[in-house]
Simulated assay, not measured.
Amino acid sequence: NKHTNCRIYNIRIIYVTLQAVPNVQRNQLQLVGVTAMFIASKYEEIYAPDVGDFVYVTDHAYTKADVFQCEREIMSKLGFCLARPIPLSFLRRFVKAAHGTSKNHHLAKYLVDLSLVEYTMAHYRPSELAAAAICLSLHLLSGKKLEEVWTPTLSYYSGYSLEHIDPIIRKLAKIVVNVDNSRYKAVYNKYLDTSLAKVSSLHQLRGEAIYELAKIPSSS
């Protein structure tokens, strides 16, 4: 969980930085990326990597001084505030409210992880992503309708109606059915692990229900 949280913070820092400074030069994007990772690791990890490790990752394209300077600029843009909730903070609460299983939790985490690299999902609140992910997870694993799994209890604890999260659910479904065509397989491969219930290989992720939500004709 620590590594997952660190990755989520890393991506959020990059998004916020690029929104605050939209004209970042292309040759500086790698510096922003490794500096965001450096900041996230110091915030989230007990033993954070040394700044020299991040310089090494860039093949010494930047110096330690470059990373420290970029860190100061990013933290200034963030208002020196990193203590903001992430989707997983809400997901634990929603799974408990739904009396969900560990498989529900793993599948919802997989959906959240897939959404992190999709820029079209960047503007959604962490709580919205978590709510949509657990709703889709409950729907796929139970075979029940969305209206049945999104109970008044979940609506109360999340603060969202089904109508509110429905567009997000459909976007998540579209991301899932396009996984096979994606060049980025790291998240998919991660969730093939038995400790995560191999949720990325579930047959429900290639079934009629999710294709219907994504509005893509099923190949089966």
Rank of each mutant, 00 (worst) to 15 (best):
H3M: 15
R7F: 14
I8R: 10
I8C: 11
N10L: 10
R12Y: 07
I14Q: 08
V16Y: 08
V16D: 13
V16H: 07
V16W: 06
V16R: 09
A20M: 08
V21A: 11
P22D: 09
V24N: 10
V24I: 11
V24A: 08
Q25D: 15
N27I: 10
L29T: 11
Q30H: 06
L31M: 04
L31R: 07
G33F: 04
M37A: 10
A40Q: 00
K42Y: 02
Y43D: 02
E44N: 05
E45T: 01
I46L: 10
I46Y: 09
Y47C: 09
D50A: 04
D50C: 06
G52K: 08
V55C: 05
Y56F: 15
H60N: 11
H60G: 05
Y62N: 03
A65V: 12
D66W: 12
V67F: 09
F68S: 08
E71Y: 01
E73L: 10
E73D: 12
I74F: 00
M75S: 04
L78N: 02
L78S: 05
L78Q: 00
G79E: 08
F80W: 13
L82Y: 04
P85K: 12
P87L: 11
P87T: 14
P87R: 13
L88V: 15
L88E: 15
L91H: 05
R92E: 14
R92Y: 14
F94V: 05
A97F: 03
A97C: 05
S102K: 10
N104M: 04
K109N: 09
V112A: 03
D113E: 13
L114P: 01
Y119F: 08
T120Y: 08
M121H: 01
M121F: 00
A122I: 10
A122W: 08
P126W: 02
A130H: 03
A132G: 05
L136M: 08
S137N: 00
L138F: 00
L140K: 05
L140H: 02
L140A: 00
L140I: 05
L146I: 05
L146T: 04
L146Q: 06
E147H: 10
V149C: 06
W150R: 00
T153V: 13
L154H: 07
S155A: 13
S155T: 12
Y157L: 12
S158G: 05
G159R: 10
D166W: 11
P167E: 02
P167G: 00
I169L: 07
K171I: 10
L172P: 01
L172Q: 06
K174P: 01
K174I: 06
I175N: 07
V177F: 04
D180H: 13
N181R: 14
S182E: 09
R183A: 15
K185E: 05
K185W: 08
K185F: 08
V187W: 01
Y188A: 09
N189Q: 14
Y191V: 13
L192W: 04
D193A: 12
S195K: 15
L196K: 15
S200R: 02
L202Y: 02
H203W: 07
R206T: 11
G207E: 02
G207T: 03
G207V: 02
L213Q: 01
K215Y: 11
S219A: 11
S219H: 09
